[in-house]
Design a protein around this nucleic acid. Sequence first.
DNA 1: TGTACATATGTTTAATTGTTCATATGTATA
DNA 2: TATACATATGAACAATTAAACATATGTACA
Lengths: 125, 125
Amino acid sequence: MAAEHADRTKRTTPDDDGAAREDIVEQVSRQQPDDEILYDLAELFKVFGDSTRIKILYAMFENELCVNDIAKLLNLSQSSVSHQLRILKSSKLVKFRREGKSVYYSLDDEHVRAIISMGMEHVEE
Amino acid sequence: MAAEHADRTKRTTPDDDGAAREDIVEQVSRQQPDDEILYDLAELFKVFGDSTRIKILYAMFENELCVNDIAKLLNLSQSSVSHQLRILKSSKLVKFRREGKSVYYSLDDEHVRAIISMGMEHVEE
DNA sequence: TGTACATATGTTTAATTGTTCATATGTATA
DNA sequence: TATACATATGAACAATTAAACATATGTACA
């Protein structure tokens, strides 16, 4: 794929290049997932894309925490934490269990951990 | 860590639980990366968190593409594509090379591919 | 150098969204 | 059941931002 394109870019005739480009574009178009899937993908990353939510997620990297813990830890209002947890829940990024009056939240699966780790590597390099 | 917490939650004395919570919170607080790093991490995911940018990134998954290709492929204005590529560039998600009048963009490194793939797995499950 | 094509960028506007405040729901216990 | 504590949720406001439009910059070629 990439190799094929590399070949084409070596051509010098304008018309040929134009035709090649159209071919590439059409091929990419066929390979592109449905808009709906890419929309969902963007929505997923949007959830990671807020510093409050990232702080909450990171805090849960190795511990389950209740709403109050998170509020104290990050110096946020209980309301704000609860609102954000609602978003994290509906994106399946965290799971929770009730124990007495408290609700303990934790990361939902290894994907979440992996995505955060991968992003961290990119940021730190 | 998680094991230690599991132990503590078995205690029934309210005072003990309270003290244990504080300990956990303080420990998490020490483990938490600097706000600045988490802010950068959120900023990174924010870039992935737009359907237009995700479409552009995905289109470049296996091919380098010029601005015009992307505009045609995704039925977007040249201006819009260029603005988005600027954001992708400044986040180091894409690299580019000039060839004649055109500028060819491609994914910057394997991290980018990995993050997208990981997100895709989460969305598709 | 002038013209055409490809890309970049400044500005404005409409829409999205995180936080705050107020209030409601849920749970344990006296 | 009344009270206190923990969490959830509805509404309003302020800040962010993607798209559109106009225009500028950069490149090739006659």
